[in-house]
Simulated assay, not measured.
Amino acid sequence: MEFKILFSFLVLAMNPFLGHSQIKNFKEKFELPSEIKETSGLLLIDGKIITHNDRGDAANLYEIDSLSGNLLRTIRITNATNEDWEDLAEDENHIYIGDFGNNDGNRTNLRIYKILKSDFKNKTAVTAERISFGYEDQTNFSNQKNNHNFDAEALIVYNNELLIFTKNRQNLKTNVYKIPKESGGYAAKKISSANIGGLITGATHNKEDDSFFLCGYSTNSIPFLIYVSENRAPGDDLFSGGFLKISLQNELGQGSQIEGITNFNGGGNY
């Protein structure tokens, strides 16, 4: 993207069953530092914004002042490569980096890097554990550029597991897969699916009310949000209660490509 800008917004009175929502105080915060050429994942840790570049950069995380937008630190993952980093997630003790971008559908080395938060906060060079996985239902690994359902750009930690939301280029749905948080190799289990009519590029979980936001864009480049409320059946099927799709065309215009989203202070999001 030519412009790399961070926005914030508040969400009030979300009610998918009444079919409406209120997004308030949607505003530009700042332009991202020049080192951030293609921001993808977002986290907020200790009041600082954490992000990374998409494919092609070194294996770096960038820590940004949430008030000024100034780059504070660059943290290198010494035993990792950035083949196609797409999203960040966290739990109490770790940060997870999703290296699972799969534009052509033919990757057999999908992985998530896991680093200690204590190392991240105190060092500028850290080592990572590796979580490797493949999708349990993928059997075709030929080059299928822009015509398959096994790309992914969204990751969260939920119920002590990692959840991956796919970016389905073929059918414009998103599928949810889960894998353990521990290092090792796994077959990702499909647990939910929704016909969202677009391409999902990021996800965040609000622990205060157990809701989710996904971000993405349509095939005609209209950015949107997907809201999943806490009013759903118990269990793994996150979309059992439906979802609400919110266009951001008025706020961002057609052609904007959102790549990451993270929650702060309960009702706020970057």
Rank of each mutant, 00 (worst) to 15 (best):
I77T: 07
N168Y: 06
I258M: 14
T139K: 09
L72S: 14
L42V: 05
W85V: 06
Q257G: 05
N53F: 10
P234Q: 13
Q144I: 05
I50D: 04
N206T: 07
P223N: 08
S221P: 00
G197N: 11
Y186T: 09
K114S: 04
D210T: 13
L71K: 10
G105W: 09
E92D: 15
E208H: 13
S221E: 02
Y113C: 12
R107S: 08
I222E: 02
G19W: 05
L61N: 13
D237M: 07
E182H: 03
L110I: 11
F243C: 11
L252D: 09
R111M: 08
I179K: 15
R130E: 15
T81D: 03
E83F: 11
G253A: 06
E38W: 02
H205G: 06
G242A: 06
A194T: 01
Y158W: 01
G242R: 09
L238P: 00
V157W: 01
T201I: 15
L155K: 05
L244A: 04
N15F: 03
I258R: 14
R107H: 07
L244I: 00
A233Q: 11
L67P: 06
V126S: 02
F120I: 05
I164D: 01
F133V: 00
N168G: 07
P16C: 01
L43C: 11
F243Q: 12
M14D: 04
R55T: 04
G47K: 14
L244D: 11
I50A: 13
P234H: 10
S229C: 07
Q257I: 06
R130K: 10
E251C: 09
I156D: 00
I131D: 03
K27D: 08
D87L: 01
G56T: 06
Q170V: 01
L72H: 11
L199E: 12
N160G: 02
Q144P: 06
G101Y: 10
L44F: 11
Q138V: 08
K173M: 11
S40L: 00
D57P: 15
I115W: 00
T51H: 05
